[in-house]
Design a protein around this nucleic acid. Structure first.
Length: 135
DNA sequence: GCCAACGTTGGC
DNA sequence: GCCAACGTTGGC
């Protein structure tokens, strides 16, 4: 299994929105590297849901429930999206500030490349973050 | 194929 | 609101 981190501005699409829907298309990603990561996602992979802009914290765990397929919001046919479902909200949201200050997470892709909206997370990083989240 | 100008993302 | 870090576009 692989692990990922996916960012969304809660204004546009929040953890609560996903919980309401139970299953959502992770659409609107228009960056080639982020797209490549989504193409690599397999059913059953886990992804951290991160609130960018407002909150700046990891708020929940998702599961990839459908692998890459054409993004329904894209008319050019060039971009793909995956579908995700909520697994659970984390007991303690993990702040960006906390992750930045943690030596165990210094090499995280999302720390090193802050603008990337979909990034891989190693198993060690994933487990470490779950620890910080009270799991 | 290079690079300047511009647009966007996202943290501060 | 600002700015750094990218990504994209278009002239040459």
């Amino acid at each position: 299994m692989n692990y990922w981190l996916m960012k969304s501005e809660p204004d546009a699409f929040s953890w609560d929105d996903l919980v309401k829907q139970q299953k959502g298309e992770w659409d609107g990603v228009r960056n080639h590297l982020a797209q490549r990561h989504m193409k690599a996602m397999k059913k059953g992979d886990r992804a951290l849901f991160y609130h960018s802009n407002i909150g700046l914290e990891v708020v929940g765990i998702m599961e990839i429930v459908e692998e890459a397929a054409p993004d329904s919001t894209d008319e050019t046919g060039r971009w793909i999206a995956v579908h995700v479902s909520p697994v659970q909200r984390v007991p303690v949201p993990v702040k960006l500030k906390t992750m930045k200050a943690d030596p165990a997470l210094a090499n995280m892709v999302m720390i090193r490349q802050s603008r990337l909206s979909v990034s891989p997370v190693t198993e060690a990083e994933y487990k470490h973050i779950l620890g910080l989240a009270g799991l």
